[in-house]
């Protein structure tokens, strides 16, 4: 028996909007730790890892570890039917091939339940070791989204370079080139507006921009985003989900053959 009650149901709606374009089908894993997902995009270049910790749910019952295969496009369609202020409860019986989403309005005057068929999905988990990163950049998520959108109108790839001067996003295309430098800026009114750069050594990596634009669909989940970079390792783009967990995107770099 599985029963997860999330008072801030809009979080789950935002999570689905953030991942549904990157991954079609995925297994949601439920355990005592929380509700999680790890899935790669179809080209095996990008990976999404989600964790919503059990403590973040108002009610969390998961009698045994369970993996539920879902089509994320269909799940997003169902969650779109929940109001932004609704409480969302996920329910599944042991051995069942369906999951039920229950939406309750805050005043309890409207209660809806939607039942979705589960799927058998061959899950392909990757072991991602803890790594020391050469540079970690934290910046406003809206600023990062703006940069990715602007650069993708010029070129297809972005070079992210971190030096003691700041973090530089560069692209080139048929019409020209673009460079955007963000300097460390911690003297802002609100901490979430700061750009903070922790650099152990300079790093420069090249990535396909279209994936970054997909990752920025997670912007509504967090005011800030963290980019963790190391030479010749996938970048980690992390959006913290307040008091609940995170959504992390991993993207393999392009490197010299």
């Amino acid at each position: 028996m599985l029963e997860l009650r999330l008072v801030q149901g809009s979080l789950l709606k935002k999570v689905l909007e953030a991942v549904k374009d990157l991954v079609n089908d995925a297994n949601f894993d439920c355990s005592a730790t929380g509700f999680s997902l790890q899935a790669m995009d179809s080209s095996h270049v990008a990976l999404v890892a989600l964790l919503l910790r059990s403590e973040g749910f108002e009610h969390y019952r998961c009698d045994r570890n369970i993996s539920m295969g879902m089509n994320l496009g269909n799940m997003a369609k169902m969650l779109k039917c929940a109001g932004n202020d609704d409480i969302i409860t996920l329910k599944a019986d042991d051995g069942s091939d369906v999951v039920t989403f229950m939406f309750e309005s805050p005043t309890q005057d409207k209660i809806a339940d939607f039942e979705m068929k589960l799927m058998d999905i061959d899950s392909e988990h990757l072991g991602i070791p803890e790594a020391e990163y050469h540079a970690i950049v934290r910046m406003p998520s809206s600023e990062f989204a703006r940069i990715c959108k602007d650069l993708s109108s010029i070129g297809d790839t972005v070079v992210i370079s971190v030096t003691k001067e700041g973090v530089k996003f560069s692209t080139r295309g048929d019409i020209g080139t673009a460079n955007i430098v963000c300097r460390q800026n911690t003297t802002v009114d609100k901490p979430e507006e700061a750009t903070v750069i922790e650099m152990n050594e300079p790093v420069s990596l090249t990535f396909a921009l279209r994936y970054f634009n997909s990752f920025t669909k997670a912007t509504p989940l967090s005011n800030t985003v963290t980019l963790s970079l190391s030479s010749e390792l996938p970048v980690v783009v992390e959006y913290k989900i307040a008091e609940m967990g995170y959504i992390r995107f991993y993207l393999a770099p392009k490197i010299e053959d």
Binding site: M40, S43, H44, V45, A46, L47, E124, H125, L126, G127, I128, P129, T157, T206, A208, L233, P234, Y250, A252, P253, K254, I255, E256, D257
Partner: peptide, 14 residues
């Protein structure tokens, strides 16, 4: 030129 690496070039399948 640069070639696109895959995640399996860096991380192992469990």
């Amino acid at each position: 030129g640069k070639i696109q690496k895959l995640l399996s070039d860096f991380y192992c399948h469990l």
